[in-house]
């Protein structure tokens, strides 16, 4: 408290696009944790099944995928057990789409508190990313449990690959994408409300352009460039490659993905901090 006390502070219009005040975020870390806690708890308080919900959604979606895409449509799962294949895609995709969905609404859903007290607005989307990570780890545990089960049954064999070491990096990529895209979208929706209509089904559509329900190497060569142009594809493919040993792993694709993430995140943070200044005037 005494640190902040009597410290001089200047309030003025942000002249430069790059005046991001990122250091300020550190002083508000307590607040970040509070929001994370709230976000995490709020997702299952007032529910009967409580934290079980973290498992129910991926389990049922996976079963549905197995049924529809695996059994009815007969889409290849690259020789992997269907459940494991879909679940591996889903845990990653869920993290991305949940985070994106929530971040895309930060301004609108928090206008009440944004209008009354100041804190670096970026804290809000960051808290969504972090609480999403907690959820991701829980679902990842589910994946590991099922992975072990198939290992014991002998349907997959685990062999340590160096790609496993990339896991933290994949998570960072994933977080960066959902944060960056979310920031761009939320900034734009404050002015162009049509976007919020689009985002709902846009995310759903994007999933089909990402190798979640199909492996990349089952894509006809003609359309492969489309899926490869999607910078999220390499994340899922690498994840599968690390655990299941299948999928297209290429350093080049991963670099491309990293590059895209950096640009999107950069644009996102800039637009967000631009919009943040006067957002309350137009809400």
């Amino acid at each position: 408290m005494q640190i902040a006390s009597n410290k001089k502070e200047i309030i003025k219009p942000h002249k430069s696009l790059f005046d991001l005040r990122l250091i300020e975020l550190w002083n508000y870390r307590d607040l970040l944790f509070m929001f994370v806690k709230r976000d995490f708890l709020a997702s299952y308080t007032q529910t009967i099944l409580g934290p079980l919900w973290f498992f129910i959604q991926p389990i049922f979606t996976t079963l549905m995928f197995v049924f529809v895409f695996g059994n009815i449509a007969g889409i290849s799962t690259d020789g992997q057990p269907k459940i494991l294949f879909y679940l591996s895609g889903l845990v990653i995709w869920n993290y991305f789409s949940d985070g994106l969905n929530k971040t895309a609404n930060v301004f609108v859903s928090n206008s009440g508190i944004f209008g009354k007290v100041y804190f670096p607005r970026l804290i809000m989307p960051l808290s969504i990313v972090v609480s999403g990570l907690l959820r991701f780890f829980i679902q990842f545990l589910l994946f590991l449990a099922i992975f072990c089960y198939y290992n014991i049954k002998g349907e997959v064999t685990f062999s340590f690959s160096t790609a496993l070491l990339l896991l933290p990096f994949l998570i960072i990529l994933m977080a960066g994408f959902s944060l960056g895209l979310g920031l761009i979208i939320t900034s734009l929706t404050t002015k162009y409300r049509d976007l919020s209509m689009f985002i709902g089904f846009g995310i759903g559509l994007l999933m089909y352009a990402t190798p979640v329900i199909y492996p990349m190497n089952a894509v006809p060569a003609k359309y492969l460039f489309l899926v490869q142009a999607n910078p999220i594809s390499p994340i899922i493919e690498t994840f599968r490659y690390a655990f299941l040993g299948s999928g297209m792993f290429s350093v080049l694709n991963l670099l491309y993905s990293t590059f895209c993430m950096a640009i999107i995140l950069f644009i996102g943070v800039i637009t967000f901090s631009k919009v943040e200044q006067n957002f309350m005037d137009t809400v």
């Binding site: 006390s5 200047i10 003025k12 009354k116 007290v117 006067n278």
Partner: peptide, 25 residues
């Protein structure tokens, strides 16, 4: 700091707590 000025500059010394119109933070 709920909204920023279009022009000009303010120097503030110390922590600010505000109760702005009806409704609270």
């Amino acid at each position: 700091k709920i909204t920023s000025p279009t022009k000009g500059e303010i120097e503030v010394y110390g922590r600010v707590a505000s109760l702005l119109e009806v409704g609270t933070g």
